[in-house]
Every structure is written in structure tokens, then in C-alpha cells.
Design a protein around this nucleic acid. Sequence first.
DNA 1: GAGGTTACCAAAACCGGTTCAGTCGCTACA
DNA 2: TGTAGCGACTGAACCGGTTTTGGTAACCTC
Lengths: 354, 354
Amino acid sequence: MSRVTINEIARRSGVSKGAVSYALNNRPGVSAETRARILAVADQLGWAPNRTARLLSGSRTDTFGLVLARDPRTLASEPFYMEFVAGLESVLSTRSYALLLQVCVDLDSELTTYRKWSSERRVDAVVVVDVRVDDPRLLLLTELELPAVFVGDPSVTAPYTTVWTDDSAAMDAAVAYLVTLGHLRIARVSGIDDLSHVQIRDRAFLAAAAAHGVTGRIHVADFSAEGGRDATRALLAGPGSPTAIMFDNDLMAVSALSALSELGVAVPAAVSILAWDDSALCEITHPQLSAMSHDVMGSGAHVARRLFDLLEGTPPAAHLDSTPRLVVRGSTAPPPAQPVGAPVAASVVDSPVS
Amino acid sequence: MSRVTINEIARRSGVSKGAVSYALNNRPGVSAETRARILAVADQLGWAPNRTARLLSGSRTDTFGLVLARDPRTLASEPFYMEFVAGLESVLSTRSYALLLQVCVDLDSELTTYRKWSSERRVDAVVVVDVRVDDPRLLLLTELELPAVFVGDPSVTAPYTTVWTDDSAAMDAAVAYLVTLGHLRIARVSGIDDLSHVQIRDRAFLAAAAAHGVTGRIHVADFSAEGGRDATRALLAGPGSPTAIMFDNDLMAVSALSALSELGVAVPAAVSILAWDDSALCEITHPQLSAMSHDVMGSGAHVARRLFDLLEGTPPAAHLDSTPRLVVRGSTAPPPAQPVGAPVAASVVDSPVS
DNA sequence: GAGGTTACCAAAACCGGTTCAGTCGCTACA
DNA sequence: TGTAGCGACTGAACCGGTTTTGGTAACCTC
């Protein structure tokens, strides 16, 4: 168990430390025979590099950071993050990079974390998710000169490398699908509305509804199960209630389904439900949820590749990862027979729940 | 942005490098005045320690490792792991320790990961979850001399520090509760059955059923949503089907609920459902799921504390973390009126699904 | 055959800390 | 008065690599 160092290898193969370093790193500076001899000795001794020592010379840490600012329990019930992390990790591990994960309660502690990481030089770069409008992290990271890859819409992540999904196009497709089924009153339950992708979906939703001449209505929620449930109840309470509801993540859609079951509203006969993200959750309900499917793991892997690009000096750019695509399951169908009358093509935004 | 080193501080405060080190680490060897002067200079210069350099001298890495061997997508839909990680993390971050997380597909790659971590000295210790009977990891970690904390039953984690939950006691309570409600035929859908805690629950379940003189039946599944659904269908198909079913995690219970809804079986009127673990998932269904509740985050935090103990040389021991406690919600109720006749107090184990 | 490359390798500096063996001056005590 | 002991501090070794510098021999070249 005594550790094998390159000093030992140098001694045994009768060369200098430097020569061993060249040989082991496959760099020029030693002859083929010497290299082979050194490698043989290293192999025989079972040498493995000491990461710490190696990192001390370079100034890298071989670590990327990810901060998730969200209540841990709700974090856990949303499959999104774990899938994303697994995706990141699948690429990082092939390069022996580590992911430093920090779960914290709010944006302020997230900023504090970046400051700490930066001063301690704990990470080579960070991944920023849940981008907001006028996001303070953008400014801070610039100030700290901490390299970062953003996951969000390029329009708000300005000079940074960004991986994004075309939510606008996906929203168009989603609305078009529901309209084709015959729905004239469509609602959207959105997530926390200072997140930029939520706003982008909002705009695309209203635009698509208007373009198709149907009623589009937005109810602001917060991605949580309670939010989904409350929104559903509220939407069904009033007159002219929607015949189709889209949700901003699958967790809200699942809890909407249970709220509807509780209310005795049949899905999809009376109301159609469409989820977003499409994790495994969508397949454990009855009926199974139709969803705008998004390869979250793939997206994580993509982000990881951009992180490495960043370190290699690739200039910042926006990279389209994918466009969520419609997966039809059992929760969407044509609306129930309509009372005759021209639909009113108006668009309304409800005030957020308190 | 130019980094401040202790050399710089030594120069500016007119003392040696060593003195600075003593002062900054709050160790004896310098007078109070000198210490104050050095600290003032360090503060003024905005010094932060270089972790890498510090770690090179000691032989620690300030990192713990966790390998999760499971398909990433099912991993994501099970809230357990994310909650556990958040719990670990809550303690690690206060000590500036990092968690090295590795998601891999099977046990073999998990073993490979340990070997790699060990040879590269990437972690100070690891956390082992999902302990199996005759777990090969136990042997390997001993061989590698890699410190570890196991999460599982002390009976199978032998000489290692272990954090466990008293599943036997919890199972007793669960069965007693269902019996008290009047159930005479109770089934249990278990998870992957070479996991030791699954076997422990199995034994406790059969024993409790026998003790109460009711029929206890075990159906082996695999923790997955499909497994839960299939098990539910199978259990209800035959004659003498159970009036209450317990599941080994909440994911299976949720998907059972949807399977029952599909079959038109009322919950809890016709069949009672009891989940295990009790993540937020249990509260987004209709009816909400009664569950054996287990503070997974707390357990993660507990494990983290034991990891630090380990480094400080605390001898291995088994630590009881908690006993899952019953949380009654809407999915359990007395069974439907029984046909008259003496219950048969037999216990059966179904063969696993292919 | 003198001067210039080039290939190969040794030696040493370096990364930024920690730690240990001494040195120095001072006090306490025999 | 000699010396043992101690606190405060210096200087240097050390952790295990990477990188730079420099030296030597062989090979070319005019």
C-alpha cells in the first residue's frame, strides 16, 4: 500500500524525475526505448498519478461546479435535476473531472457559493441553471472571472456560452397539436415566472394561441405539486374553463391529474393534460401523460462538452441543444362536445397565486 | 486577480513562511502580536488558501465519494437518492468537503470506480448504499483499505461503520396497523431481492403476519414503476387477493395506484395501499398515500457525520439512524366487508417476475 | 576540423502550502 | 554563574508532480 511515486520509478529505471514525467505523459523528450523501459517499470510498480501534486503545478482543479438553489425536498421530487446531473457526469467521468454539487436554499447563498469557490479556486468553471431575467449571477461571474456555461435562452445569457432548447418552437407545436384536436380554450400553468424560459414559453404560448385564433390563458404557479393542484382547481372553477391545460413541468401535471381525479373530472374526456419535460413520472400515472419530451440527460452531456470547450479557449457561443418534441400518450384527446357559439379569441394572464 | 500566497504575506509582514502558516492556521508558534500583524496583512491582501497546495502536504483530498449503480433515468424518478445526496451535502459543505458522485450502470462498474478512486487517491472515504447480501464491495473496500460508511443493516456490513434504520420494527408497526384496520390478507411488493434491507423487511413481514395470524404474501419486484404496476395486477388477479398491499418504495406505490385506477379498483375502499420512504411523491396522488415515513435527508446528514468520525479514527460501529414511522393519509382504510370464513394463516412467496 | 544542430536526458527550480530541526534571547532555578 | 527550559521564530526539507535550464554526445555541414 506504500504509494508509488515517480521518484521511485526514476530510481528504479535509472533516469531522472523529469524523464519519467515526459515518458508517463507521452510527451517528446525521451527516446522510444527509454520511454518503454520507464513505462514498464511504472506498470510493474502499479503507479498512478497523484492528482493533487499534478494539479499544484498546473493551476486547474479538474472540477466543475453546479449550484442548485431550491428546497432540497422539492428538488428531489423533480426528476429533472438528477437526470441533468447524471448527464453531466456521464461526460465528466470519462475525463476524470469531478462535479462539485451544492444544494442551497436561495439565490443569495448561491452567489455566496460562487464567491467562495472563486476565492478558493475550487472549480475550473460552473454550470448555471434556472436562468432569470436580469440574472445577478451573470454579473457576479463576470466580475469573478469564473468561466461558466449557462443553460437557458441566449437572449438573456448574453456574452456567455449557452446551451438552450427551442422552447418557442416546441410551444408552437404543442398549441398546434391541441388546436388540431379541436380545443378552443387552452390554459397554460407556468412555473416561477422570473425564470427566463418560463417567460419565453409564456410569450410563445400567447402568440401561438392568437395565431390560431383560440383562447390562451396563463396561470402562474411555481413548479411545485401544490402549485399544480391549486392552479388546476382555479382554472376549472370559473366560467369558460379551458378544455386543455399545459403544465411547465411534469410534477405539476401529475398533481393536476390527481386533483382532477379528486374533482371527478375525467381525463382526457373532459379535460386534456399536457406535461413538459417528460421524465419517467409521466408514465406512472393513469392515464399516462402526453408531454413535450426533452432529453434532459442528453442536455446535461451537451453542457459538459461545452465546459471542456470553454477551458480549451473556444469563444462563447449559443448552442441549440434540442427542441422538445410531442409525445402523445393518454392524457390528451379532443374536447367534449362544444356548446355552439363563436369562440372568443382573447388572451388573459391570471395574477400569480399568493 | 493575481493570486496572493503566503510567501507574499511573509515578505510584507517581515516574517518567515512558517510563521505565516502558523498564524493563519491558528496554531501555537507565534506571539499574539505577530499573529495579529500577519492576519491583518493576509486580510488586507485578500488571501485565500490554495486547497491543492494544502492537500499535497497532508495526504487528504477533502472529498468523499458516492457511487450510484442504477439506470440514470430510474434513479432520477426515485426521489430517495437526491434527498440523500442533499442531506450528505448539507453537512459536507460546512466543512468544505466535496462529494464526488458517480452514476454507473451496474455493480461491476461500481467496483471499477472504487479501484480507480483508490489508486488515484481521489477520495478520503466512500459511502456505500444499496447493500446486498454477500456484498462484493465489502471485500474490495477492505482490500483497497478505502474507508467507508455503509448504509444498511449491521448484520451484513460486519466490521464497517454503518448507519441503519430499524426496518424490522417499522415493518412490525406497519403490519400491526393494517391488522388493526381489519385486514386479513396482506401482500408486500418488495424491491430487488438481493438487497439486504429488502430481505430483512421480507423476514419481518412474514414474521409479523404469522404473529398476527393473517395471510402474508410477498411478491418480488424491482423498485421500478413497471414492477409496481405488474405486481399489483398479478396480486389482484388470483383468488384470495389481498385487501392491503405494502410497497418497498413510493415509486412502486404510486404506479400501483394508477394501475388500480385503470382496473377500476377503488383505493382505499377495495384495496389499501401503503408506501415506504414517503417522499413528496406520496402527496401528489389521489388519494394521498399512507406511508412508512423515513427522513432520508436526515439520514444523509447522519452518514456525513460518521464519515468525519471515521477520518478522526473513531472505531467502526453501527449507528441506528431512525425507525420509519407510520404516516396515515388517504390510501389505507378497513377492508371491504369479508365473506364469512376463517382466514388461512399461510405465508407464501411468489416467484420473481421474469 | 571548427561551428552549429539536434536528440536525449540530468539537475534543479517551481507550484503553495505544512512541518520539523534548529537558533536565539530570555527567564528560572540550582 | 552556569545551565536547563521555554517561547518565538527562521530556514530548509518536504509533498509529488511539471517545466525550465543546461550539458553532453552524436550527427551534419561547409
